[in-house]
């Protein structure tokens, strides 16, 4: 489904070219469970952003479902993000002024789904993630675990085929972190490809496929 061919990403720092990714070729199938591990600065997050279409490669091609998505314009890339990709962040990234339910609804609003359909889907997600009694709470009234559950519910609200999680347990204690990983793993059983960036070998080790990165290269 995801296919990267000789993808590089470089930044100009002063008059020097700094490579964040060097010549990466990678295939990820639907329902794959991939963990990305490696030290800071090894390019994990850059690769994740690139797959999530938040960033463009400097060279190489990235095709999604057989289509070259690097050639798409901003509008078309936004649509692909909306329909196929869900993000889960380390710092949750909930909109502080919106309630849990409204945060979950956000991708549906952005996709232009009519209000009645949205409400039904949000209600289902709140129930699935045990947040029904927290629907009207704002993020600052929720615990870390609850916040990340809201974020996962939000990431899955558009039924994406790819879920990108960047250190989703980084701001959580161990047992809550474990719960969050369990929730994400359940999704892989529903044919969602999960790509998980982590520092924690215990968490990364649970993935069916483990990729290690160093200096912008995948080393196995």
């Amino acid at each position: 489904m995801i296919s990267l061919e000789h993808v590089s990403r470089s930044f100009a720092v002063g008059d020097q070219q700094v490579y964040a990714l060097r010549d990466i070729s990678l295939d990820i199938a639907a329902g794959d469970y991939v963990s990305l591990m490696g030290p800071s600065g090894s390019g994990k997050s850059t690769l994740l952003n690139l797959i999530g279409l938040l960033d463009r490669p400097s060279s190489g091609t990235y095709s999604l479902d057989g289509k070259d998505v690097t050639a798409l314009n901003d509008e078309e890339q936004a649509r692909v993000r909306s329909e196929k990709i869900g993000f889960v962040f380390q710092s949750f990234n909930l909109v502080p002024r919106l309630t849990a339910a409204m945060n979950i609804e956000l991708p549906l609003i952005l996709a232009g789904i009519p209000s009645g359909k949205r409400k039904a889907r949000v209600e289902g997600l709140l129930k699935d993630y045990g947040l029904s009694d927290r629907a009207d709470h704002r993020p600052d009234q929720l615990s870390g675990g609850q916040r990340q559950r809201v974020a996962i519910a939000r990431a899955t609200s558009m039924h994406p085929s790819i879920l990108l999680a960047d250190e989703p347990t980084g701001n959580l204690d161990q047992s809550t972190g474990r719960e969050v990983i369990d929730l994400l793993e359940i999704l892989t059983e529903q044919n969602v490809a999960l790509i998980l960036v982590t520092h924690d070998p215990a968490i990364g080790g649970r993935a069916r496929r483990q990729l290690h990165m160093l200096d912008g290269r995948v080393i196995g």
């Binding site: 938040l54 901003d74 909306s82 909109v95």
Partner: peptide, 16 residues
């Protein structure tokens, strides 16, 4: 800024 970045990640285009 953070909210704008998030909205983009969630599928908002620049024109949106």
């Amino acid at each position: 800024v953070k909210e704008i970045g998030l909205l983009k990640a969630l599928g908002a285009s620049s024109s949106g």
